[in-house]
Computed example of a mutant assay.
Amino acid sequence: MDISLLINYFNKISPLTEEMEQAIRSKVRKLQYKRDDLIPNNPYPELLFVIEGLLIGYVDVDELGIASWLAQEGELTLTSQIPLGRESGPERIVAIEDTHALAIPADLFEGLSGNRIQSQRFERALWKHFLSTARQRSLLVSLHSARRRLEIFRLNQPGLEKRVPDEALASYLGITVHLLRRAQQGTAA
């Protein structure tokens, strides 16, 4: 797995300093998961950058797993562990496909002696990205029509529907599997 994909991704968010690139190269770990693997909660918060494959995050609410995010190739996970600052939480991450990923410690850039303003600028840009993603998901599930939710998902995530099992996709869209199948057939409201 090439860490340069992650560095390029971060540089699109906000340019990295040489010291930040060195921190990425020294602290990021390579991971590999098989389809249906449950990704273990780590003893410290971290993000996952998907190189190949597909991950889904579930938040457990009243013994019901609700899909809260999907991350495919070239995307970062949007875990509840990072924003809430918890070491472990009610979130489960599952590999929908065989997946290669990079584990990024949440404190990746802490303590760098270089340009602190650049590190803070990068962290703000990353939070802006996460908040934008969360907002899109929130708007998606606020739509009343199952058909419209599916249409918006297809527009925002072309081709992803075929890769996600119906149960996971229905949960992500906030609808039942029955409504999802009706929306796919064009018979749902």
Rank of each mutant, 00 (worst) to 15 (best):
V28F: 12
G57A: 06
S80W: 01
G65S: 09
K34F: 09
E63P: 01
A71R: 05
D37C: 01
T79W: 00
G65L: 06
V50G: 05
R25E: 15
L38K: 12
G57W: 01
A23T: 01
L38F: 01
L54A: 01
L64E: 08
I82M: 10
G65W: 04
Q32R: 07
S68M: 09
S80C: 01
R25K: 15
L78K: 04
Q22N: 09
S68H: 07
F49R: 04
I56K: 09
P45L: 11
E63R: 08
R25P: 04
L76E: 13
T79M: 13
V50Y: 00
L76V: 10
T77A: 06
A67H: 05
E73I: 14
T79A: 06
E75C: 05
V61H: 11
V28L: 05
Y33P: 03
I82V: 15
K34V: 00
E19V: 13
I51T: 14
E75Q: 15
I56L: 08
I56S: 06
P45G: 14
E63Q: 05
A71L: 03
E46Y: 14
E73N: 05
K30E: 14
V61Y: 08
L31I: 02
D62Y: 00
L70F: 04
A71V: 12
G57E: 02
M20A: 10
R29S: 13
Q32P: 00
V50R: 02
I56V: 15
Y44I: 10
K27I: 10
E21W: 12
R86D: 02
A71S: 15
G65F: 13
K30F: 10
S68N: 13
L31W: 01
Y58W: 00
M20N: 05
D62F: 07
L48T: 11
R35F: 00
L38P: 02
M20D: 11
D60T: 15
V28K: 13
D37N: 06
V61A: 09
W69V: 07
L70R: 02
G53Q: 03
M20W: 11
P40Q: 03
L70H: 01
L47R: 12
K34M: 03
Q22G: 08
E46M: 13
G53N: 04
E75G: 07
L78A: 06
V50N: 01
T77M: 04
E21I: 13
